[in-house]
Design a binder for these strands. Structure first.
Lengths: 201, 201
DNA sequence: GGTCGAGTAAACCGATCTGTCTACCTGAGT
DNA sequence: ACTCAGGTAGACAGATCGGTTTACTCGACC
């Protein structure tokens, strides 16, 4: 549950907070490489000096951006998991949460996947955040399934992970409407089928 | 089957062909914005003048890159679909083809999804290629399912699309090994279940 | 022999990139 | 009264960006 390999966070003064908010909007909307530090500073209403006093480099802004997104997503998801009475409901709540998150935070797909498309170096400090977030989600699915169908936890958890990732992509590219709802219903069918059905799958 | 809204292609002289090959490698590996035209020219062993004589702009190189990737993928997939005896086999052949394609062409996920992460403007000529490719894939899945379970074609086709997209993402981010094989087996289970099973799903 | 398409080599342009710097201002804590 | 963190304003630097231009070479085709 703890944020495992956090690659350092920076103290967020008011100016830094505005800068991070602006960077987040711009990075997600236009892509990381397409957004310059001058634009971030202008949008945030701070000077470049403030940016570099707080973050030290653009790379560090990127790191903070992804770590912040990850943190916010987990905080967004947590109460929905707590409020769901059964593991079955908790599983479906993940898809519902993603649908609502997308409605609030723009619809260009997963910021981690998008960032990964622009960062090729595995030694980049942002890389660990990206892969860490995906591993966390996979573990979440697997653990939730374990309470329902222990024998199939690994396999079914991975399947739900694929459905979820696919739905995020489909939503971002607007492949068809309601992709997250569709994935949710498919997940429900999978769960019902495995719980009450034969184990031959 | 015809490439619908092709936004113009450029005649490929030998130099242009080398440039496109180099651009493809670099764009896919490092991202579009991170690769400059000077680097493309150097890697291809051509001068910048040749680049601009043939393509006119970097934007056009990007368009050719994506159109070329799309074209190659369809050419890669076509014989595998023809060789598969039944619709059931053809469906699974898509997942097998993606697995083999990834083994050959590097493992950073779907070039269309990655490009979409860097192109925010829907008016960009590359946008039509990206969305067109995804719509083509969705139609492929749906049409193949229709021969097996007509009543569920739309729904099951979308589910297979999500599984496939999710598997590509999972492969690119290395979320767990064998994601495309896992998606294939899950697709098989879904198909078997819907063909012989109850229609209550 | 003349024309033309495809190419090399390399200088050049204005804009933008990340990052640094100096000088000054302001408000809170002690 | 003094200090100091956090900030503004804005010039500056070196590199790189996409793109243009001039001058020249080479081979094929008729």
């Amino acid at each position: 549950m703890t944020t495992a390999n956090a690659p350092r966070r920076v103290p967020l003064t008011p100016g830094a907070r505005r800068a991070l908010a602006a960077a987040g909007r711009l990075f997600y909307q236009r892509g990381i490489h397409a957004v310059g530090v001058d634009l971030i500073a202008a949008e945030a209403g701070v000077t470049k000096k403030t940016l570099y006093d707080r973050f030290g480099s653009k790379e560090q802004i990127v790191v903070e951006y992804l770590a912040d997104r990850d943190e916010r997503w987990r905080a967004f998801l947590a109460p929905r998991l707590e409020d769901a009475p059964t593991p079955h409901d908790r599983l479906l709540a993940v898809f519902d949460a993603s649908r609502d998150w997308m409605a609030d935070h723009g619809s260009r797909g997963c910021s981690m996947v998008n960032a990964h498309a622009e960062i090729d170096d595995p030694a980049h400090p942002a890389y660990a955040i990206i892969t860490g977030q995906k591993q966390w989600m996979l573990a979440l699915f697997t653990d939730l399934v374990r309470a329902l169908a222990p024998a199939e936890a690994d396999s079914l958890g991975r399947t739900l992970m694929l459905l979820h990732e696919g739905a995020l992509v489909a939503h971002g590219l607007d492949i068809f409407p309601g992709s997250l709802d569709h994935a949710r219903e498919e997940a429900r069918a999978l769960l019902d089928n495995s719980r009450g059905g034969p184990t031959t799958r």
